[in-house]
Nucleic acid binder design. Structure first.
Lengths: 337, 337
DNA sequence: TTCATTTGAGCAATCGATAGCACAAACATG
DNA sequence: CATGTTTGTGCTATCGATTGCTCAAATGAA
């Protein structure tokens, strides 16, 4: 691979001169600069980031840790983050953990080894202590999920508030018995969402017994099973709230198979707004989390932080972006009973 | 950040000894090794990859260039690739180009600068010459799309063959007039798919005029528009083939709105098998490209290649994986006309 | 006790880019 | 003509990990 030394030899200058010419140092004459640039171009010179880094400090890499890239949610984050970072010259090193704490730890370790400028992560469900210790060595910020760590920097969405608003919408329409189908409350996000639903009931002094909660895994299969089970209840709920897009899919597939009319016999609100929610018949009313804007503002904030001198860094920062309740055709008044 | 020097000072050894102890050199006594490892652990030492690399040669990074990570197709690739590479200690540096040749070039340049061990890419539609020149400096392999470059290393799917089989399936069912809705044939993949459909007609000596081709963009909106247009034809096709998952979605939404029964009045075969195809009512018959296995075998082959000495590298290698035609309930015999 | 051999560890160079300092040549000023 | 100043380059150390070579101490054999 071509180095500054090769250019130096070719032109008869010293390595220093080449380096200065390429970085536009004013001490080098225009004539020399032109010659150097031409030679660099001709030889196909590309500066060695590793060497540059060793001298100067940090790299232009930002580590991104996600549980799963095939999930719409996380893919949007990757997309938005990648764009924002690109604009400021940062590159993304990707880690997909599959929510496995071991993998997560290995990758964090490697990121520290690669001397990334910083790490943006959606923590796994059970983050290891070692991982937290490693993170301590690097600038980092948590996204969506919150695993209280060495530092307290977090960008999330209004899980609870969004759910509360969605529940209120259903209650306003006249529904009383509602089913909430979601993943387990092992994750902070899950807990907040469940609490949001309950909060809506509490604030209206409605009995929590009217709320049927089905918690398991964030899969379509679970959504389907939960709804099948729910439909078998004698006096079953008239509306359902989903805690994740996959669950939504299973739910509505189950409803259609059972020939339950949406929204005639059952109102549905999904969480997350993948493409198909809009194209489904009827189009599904959903809570749309502000993923893109969340990721973008997080990226900008983080890159700004990376340039801030150590002594002026805040040690704690929490930001929440607000979800949107997108009203489509899957919600309506409950049927007279 | 902690370096070997810090450990050396703490223990009173030289840096060389520390380095040897950590890498398990047999010349260092067990006792010393233990002491060094303990100290490293205690101080939270993490080796500097950049320094290690400068000396030794290449890094443990593999550049991955994708047009779009939110696309199911590409997300699967990222997932599979990430897993395979992880197992062998490689990390993924991600580039999302948005199919923009400029961005693509910038990122390739940075990858070369970062001295990645290799690059795996799904080329953008109009790859720049400069990009190809840069790629020449690094080991690389193309995925899915094929932009004849400096070298001829490519892992793809059987676009044409898969389409031909799908078309044959419809022809076998008795359909004669078929609509093919897809993105433009600007990409090599698109061209191969279209040719596959046509090939099925040719081989049976059926007139290509029975085939209605709608080419534009790979979006749901286009799928919808195309189908609306198609339905307005007096003696319209009795079956439709989609060239991409987004198009499939638009198509079936349009059909449902027009109250066209699937498969009673219209058979549908989608291309690509995102989750919802299985959950839709009726479940959609699709061509399922072997994305995961493609990515995995590509990753394994590529990492093996990275370890092969220069003089034993083959300069050309093409591999194609076969798609699966997943029969579900959206295809049937045409209605008597 | 002396010499040979094994064992354990240090010195110094290396990778590529950068930056402080030194220095020669060209020029201006008295 | 002598001295000061500007301009353009080169020399060399530096970052952190690695490695060939050197060398001292410990061990064994005669």
């Amino acid at each position: 691979m071509v180095t500054t030394k090769d250019i130096a030899i070719k032109l008869g200058f010293s390595v220093s001169t080449i380096g200065r010419a390429l970085s536009g140092d004013p001490r080098i004459s225009e004539k020399t600069k032109l010659a150097v640039r031409a030679a660099a171009e001709e030889l196909g010179y590309v500066g060695n980031m590793a060497a540059r880094m060793m001298r100067g400090g940090s790299s232009n890499l930002i580590g991104l840790i996600l549980p799963d890239i095939q999930n719409d949610f996380f893919a949007s984050i990757a997309q938005a983050l990648s764009q924002s970072c690109d604009r400021q010259g940062y590159r993304i090193v990707l880690s997909i953990t599959g929510d496995d704490p071991e993998t997560e730890m290995r990758h964090i370790h490697d990121f520290v080894g690669a001397r990334v400028a910083g790490i943006i992560l959606v923590p796994s469900a059970d983050m290891k202590r070692e991982s937290i210790a490693l993170l301590r060595q690097v600038q980092h910020v948590q996204l969506l999920r919150y695993a209280s760590g060495p530092d307290d920097l977090w960008f999330g969405i209004d899980d609870g508030d969004a759910m509360e608003r969605a529940t209120n919408h259903l209650l306003d329409l006249g529904h009383r018995r509602i089913a909430y189908v979601a993943a387990s409350d092992r994750l902070s996000t899950g807990r907040r969402r469940l609490r949001g639903v309950q909060e809506a009931y509490r604030k209206r002094d409605l009995p929590l017994s009217d709320l049927s909660v089905f918690l398991d895994t964030p899969t379509a299969t679970w959504g389907e099973r939960a709804i099948n089970e729910m439909l078998s209840i004698a006096d079953h709920p008239t509306a359902i709230l989903s805690g994740s897009a996959h669950v939504t899919m299973g739910m509505i597939a189950s409803l259609r198979r059972a020939k339950v009319d949406i929204p005639g016999q059952m109102s549905v609100i999904g969480f997350g707004d993948p493409n198909w929610c809009e194209w489904w018949q009827p189009p599904i009313t959903v809570i749309r989390p502000p993923i893109q804007s969340l990721a973008t503002s997080c990226a900008l904030w983080f890159m700004d932080r990376l340039r801030t001198p150590e002594d002026r860094l805040v040690s704690s920062y929490h930001a929440t972006s607000s979800s949107e309740l997108v009203l489509r055709d899957s919600t309506g008044r409950p049927a007279r009973s």
